[in-house]
Design a protein around this nucleic acid. Structure first.
Lengths: 285, 285
DNA sequence: CACAATTACGAGGGTCGTAAAAATG
DNA sequence: CATTTTTACGACCCTCGTAATTGTG
């Protein structure tokens, strides 16, 4: 005779339900089946767990202890299942964290082509979170707007993004060859919420600006069409989605309007990601 | 599908044996049965655990993690079995510790009459060990040669033992009415090894005496018959085993030759042992 | 060719559910 | 009389072992 997990789960159910009948129902099992199963458990333990009166059954002191112990065993087993599943999942997914949306467009497409069997999970996060996440293994690779030198990290330039103002033709500054953040500071500007670290740049360089932040892409598009408000575009955004219609696109001259994205991964993962790294370092962006 | 303990045990066996065949043999199982069982396990976990080459099987990374986790689960389960069994055993046994053999004769017989369903385990131990053992629950009741007052303990006098010298008639002191330890100090004395704290009394009161210590009762009896050496008896010993033949029995006058044994148990156990305590406190010894 | 793993298949053991019995409030 | 537990019994699922297949060193 062998102790089995399902018996422990049943024991716990009985402890929680009070009667065998109730527990059997909860377990989608017939009453007699559960009754016999508990007899088997007592047999396996070689210890009586219940006080049996013809009509009623209740845990004796052994039973109370056994339930307590069984909870630990079952918890440990559930823990095992979770851990193994999580590990397996992590084995076949590449988690990407980025400080901005644009690099993901290129990177996700690249990764999915190079590692077609892998699942890809990508998200935007605070720069600090990205770094600790890379260290902890939450991310296999991250995109930062600057290079960092850390012993465990491999770091290489990935691509460049240039920010532009998008202005309606009627806008007083729409014929400028170039503008700075200051030129539009104080005006109302349309913004998408999911723009990562650009949000911080915006706050810093245009502190007097009221921003209309749109959560949803569609709402943003709607407002772009309907309003004459300025907003931001970038070379990468236009490469992927095209130039905004009926708009003047004017480069922003501040150095902060140009981002160079760096690709980072753990050095121990360099081998696994070698195909990707090769692609990045050789490809022309 | 349900994770089961026997599958985890099998997984561990495979990890330890290296091949399914070897593990199957160790588990007294056929090779195909074990092979299928592991397929079921992978199904239950929804995670592949093995690298399968037509002819060879080996744990993959998931498998290595799973084995590690499985060990914990199985260990926890074994631990559960042990704990529950130990508890059950402790429930139906009364453990008695004594500083000397004589009180056990009466006490064990008393306990076995009063609690016929209980198993009795009795042993002699150092006084210090007895006290800590009572506190830790290793003993339900102990016998000490003195009373102690401790908050958690219930303490009551149990019985009295008076020590005698047993001398051959030809011994120079054999006609004395009474003797002290000093009177025989320096002579050779026969001793049984299992006499508990009397051994300490002996060492202290007769420091110059060489003792011939016999481990086995039969050897002791043999020497008693064959030699003319003095040895000890007590009123309780004589009550249970009779007077030694062809010997003079002479009381020892030192106060240390009289022991008053005290019965101690945890106050929380007083109720369980009430029948015994009633017997002890009312009975005349 | 010995050895290892998987697949196929029939036998047997074990567990299930239904039905019945016994006991209790 | 409803509720709860246990026993009895037949059905069925599941796992086992044997045998056969495939592949490897």
């Amino acid at each position: 005779m062998m102790l089995e997990l399902h018996q422990l789960i049943q024991l716990i159910a009985i402890a929680e339900c009070g009667t065998i009948s109730a527990a059997a129902e909860q377990l989608h099992l017939s009453q007699p089946a559960l009754s016999r199963s508990m007899q088997k458990l007592e047999e396996a333990l070689q210890v009586p767990l219940f006080d049996r009166q013809k009509n009623k059954i209740s845990l004796n002191q052994n039973g109370v202890l056994a339930v307590e112990q069984a909870r630990r065993v079952v918890e440990q087993a559930q823990n095992m299942v979770e851990q193994v599943r999580a590990f397996e999942r992590s084995q076949r997914t590449i988690s990407i964290g980025s400080c901005a949306p644009a690099p993901l467009w290129e990177l996700v497409s690249l990764v999915s082509r190079l590692y077609p069997t892998m699942a890809i999970s990508s998200e935007m996060q605070e720069i600090q979170t990205l770094q600790t996440g890379l260290k902890s293994g939450e991310y296999q690779l991250i995109i930062l707007p600057f290079a960092i030198t850390e012993a465990d990290f491999y770091c290489v330039a990935f691509e460049r993004e240039q920010l532009y103002f998008s202005l309606p033709p009627a806008h007083p500054l729409s014929d400028a060859q170039s503008l700075s953040f200051r030129d539009l500071d104080g005006q109302i500007v349309l913004l998408l919420s999911q723009i990562g670290f650009w949000r911080d740049v915006c706050r810093e360089k245009m502190p007097g600006t009221r921003t209309l932040v749109q959560e949803r892409q569609e709402d943003f598009e709607e407002l772009v069409q309907a309003s004459a408000l300025p907003f931001f575009v970038s070379d990468l955004a236009m490469k992927w989605s095209g130039k905004p219609e009926n708009r003047m696109v004017i480069p922003i001259s501040d150095p902060e309007a140009t981002a160079v994205y760096y690709f980072l991964c753990k050095k121990e993962d360099k081998k696994k990601l070698s195909a990707l790294i090769q692609q990045i370092t050789t490809e022309e962006f």
